[in-house]
Write a protein that binds this DNA or RNA. Sequence first.
DNA 1: CATGAATGAGCTTTCATTCAT
DNA 2: CATGAATGAAAGCTCATTCAT
Lengths: 256, 256, 256, 256
Amino acid sequence: MKVPGFKKGDDEHGEGPRVFGLKLPNLGDVDGVFGLKLPGLTKEPPMEGPALGPAAEAGYTEKQERVLQAAMAVFADRGFSAASTSEIAKEAGVAAGTVFRFYRTKKDLLLGVVTPVFRRFVAPQFVAAVRGLLEDDYEDLAAFLRVLLSDRMQFVRRHRLAVRIALQETPLHPELRQLWQELVVDELEPLALETVVRLQAQGLVRPVPPGVAARTVLSVLAGFLVYRFFVLPEADWNDQAEIEALIDVLVGGLGA
Amino acid sequence: MKVPGFKKGDDEHGEGPRVFGLKLPNLGDVDGVFGLKLPGLTKEPPMEGPALGPAAEAGYTEKQERVLQAAMAVFADRGFSAASTSEIAKEAGVAAGTVFRFYRTKKDLLLGVVTPVFRRFVAPQFVAAVRGLLEDDYEDLAAFLRVLLSDRMQFVRRHRLAVRIALQETPLHPELRQLWQELVVDELEPLALETVVRLQAQGLVRPVPPGVAARTVLSVLAGFLVYRFFVLPEADWNDQAEIEALIDVLVGGLGA
Amino acid sequence: MKVPGFKKGDDEHGEGPRVFGLKLPNLGDVDGVFGLKLPGLTKEPPMEGPALGPAAEAGYTEKQERVLQAAMAVFADRGFSAASTSEIAKEAGVAAGTVFRFYRTKKDLLLGVVTPVFRRFVAPQFVAAVRGLLEDDYEDLAAFLRVLLSDRMQFVRRHRLAVRIALQETPLHPELRQLWQELVVDELEPLALETVVRLQAQGLVRPVPPGVAARTVLSVLAGFLVYRFFVLPEADWNDQAEIEALIDVLVGGLGA
Amino acid sequence: MKVPGFKKGDDEHGEGPRVFGLKLPNLGDVDGVFGLKLPGLTKEPPMEGPALGPAAEAGYTEKQERVLQAAMAVFADRGFSAASTSEIAKEAGVAAGTVFRFYRTKKDLLLGVVTPVFRRFVAPQFVAAVRGLLEDDYEDLAAFLRVLLSDRMQFVRRHRLAVRIALQETPLHPELRQLWQELVVDELEPLALETVVRLQAQGLVRPVPPGVAARTVLSVLAGFLVYRFFVLPEADWNDQAEIEALIDVLVGGLGA
DNA sequence: CATGAATGAGCTTTCATTCAT
DNA sequence: CATGAATGAAAGCTCATTCAT
């Protein structure tokens, strides 16, 4: 079985730092994010496309937008509890009190950072992908997974900070868990199971329990994205190759 | 292809709450941990085996042991930054000042909670598993993965709080990242790659880049464990069946 | 000695809540003002006559009038220091900044609320009462006291909020004490003493030191009014009877 | 009728500042308390007897005692809302945080200042006075009133600050109104009415409604004390003479 | 050793006041 | 004139850490 997109020798141990076969850049010494201390970069790689924060939504003033971006940066960096609103204010270039004009409490600010991103991009985009599935009648499982993985990768890439904050803070805030409850359990899950069933009907997925199939895809996808963007964001990833490798594994394990 | 251990109908939608095909318990209403709000249990399921904290190590006084256990509970519950040393002291049944006899600062306490667990149980047990691989000459990939998954599952089950704290706090503390650097990058990774190469030489794993194989297994394993113990710890998991399903997927994708 | 105006049995303990022999209304459960927690009314009894605030004075715009009324309500309710100018603005239906067009500081607003009421109604009306005394030649002390008490009762009834604010805030603001200095010490007191002397000359008051007589009347009057309007405003007062009872006491103690 | 204790000419207009016939001291320029701006004293006159604050109660540490005294001084001076806990701390000579070891919130501190004083000295001492009435069989009304007025005067003199705070803050705090509810309505009032009835049975008070009699005495007493200690505390009061004058008035109005 | 009272820096939040629109 | 966004000083309160007992 071939792994498309992998150049020959990609994974051989050569010179330079490597982790699990990934070549790492050699530029300086920074703390990664989730990640390991790497002889790495001083900056996170630039986001692809415009940095559409939650404030891109109409109705946010430019100042509120700045507060949101600053809050995202500081919450991601220090964690919610250790972040200080005054640092956020300073980072946003506004007075300390101004933050509270937009968000009555610090916790409101957290929710204001996280909620819009997920509300607008999690369920809706999954719905769009599945609608594509219905209309385009993907010829095989790999094609469907390819769309799914690319789309979610795009999402994490663009909303890296918000995703990171969500990962960090969810265990600590019932309000965030409530958000996932609504988004994942109430909206996403029925759709996901229905999709698996459809794929099984089309003969694209073998007859495992739909829940197992769904969770397996989710685990593999999430595992990759966390690793890709938070554990080793600085590494020399060949994203296409990685995605194809994952698809290979999933198709091998789940395909009919 | 069969999925061993799954009872027929396990995944069909019956009565009672379900998430991704998992039946959830129906006992009350509690917040999970990482997890979604479930019509769930009032208590986390009891740990299997004795609750061996880091303090089980020789040389810890009974008081220090109590401090460590309390710190684990409070750090896991509130997060490091929002946890107060005085609450830890109260939980441990010691005076506020006593905590600082054992650990000079709050951060030392965090490291004291996390470090020993991982130092003693991550690399050493992986080494043991691999040594088993060498000695026992696993007849197939599934057998190896079965040992690996079961062992790591055991680990997370027994050290749930420490693992949870590590997941929550790693992004926020360079000291913890340094710990992973030493454990994972320096100790575990060479061993892992070497193991993949050996399995490929035995004809048990097909010739994908060893790094890809290693990271895929890791992702699937981690994704499952996080889901199993932190996202939906209260659900009615059939662990053996889940493990076998994952092995199926991995063998399908990676096996020769 | 009879107590005119008291109906027989007025003070006997019957059904319903009573305090010091006063029947209290039985409508619900509210906090009084100064007062005790009564099984009382949800609203203060309506003011008699039009609610003439200080702004009834010529030259106040309708907006300034609204600000004054709102300030009175909020200052009375929360106290000056705990009152926020933005709440006053909201209550008045104007923007936060508008308040400061009329009154440069919050304290100016306090003075603007209290001063006009007292400047216009304390000394002038006392002067009018005394002028009445001179012209009408009250035949007895009771008649004079009756006019005095009724008039002051009317005043407190109509300017309840301003009086309440004055009582609450005087101890805390030198500026208000200065106001009393001017009104009471400089204007009222000479007039009061002169009046006592005149009444003594007419044989209506016995020859106690004029200051003692004046302060006694003042104390009894103030004590009644505070009790009547601020401690137990909800009680079922028979004002005429109360006034006659007080006059009885005062005449008994001070009359010739 | 003579007014015992009044020296001849006491109330004549002579040199020096006078208010309602009271000679005022001539020492400097201070703000009074409630009172009018007087050419007055730089300090409140020293309390008679030991300054028994609420902290005289067993179980208060010396530091807590200092905090209470400081809180009393600052609350009385600025009012609760405008008082800052850090000023109280400084005044007490402790660190800012120490205040909150004793009283979890600023409001607790207010209650801690006011409650003990009134709980211990209002109802109990009135009970004692009435018990005296029963045992000693006062020969006339004046003797009873003399004991009552002297005792309450003593109380206000010794607990001037606490009384002042209670007067200032009661309208603003439901918790304080609750305190009066318990002390005055529930405990004191039945006793007071019963006492009036007894005095009427003894032929010492004429048959007015007991509630009227009780409230009249209360009003006159409170009016005097407020005037004496808060409006014009600096004036040259002849307390015995004032009390006798008030007794004269009350006996004249209420006596049989 | 263990205690817990004491510290004081630092936090989030409020709000009187200003000023560009 | 009126607005209300913005300010920033100051508030109440928390808590890691120290140290006399």
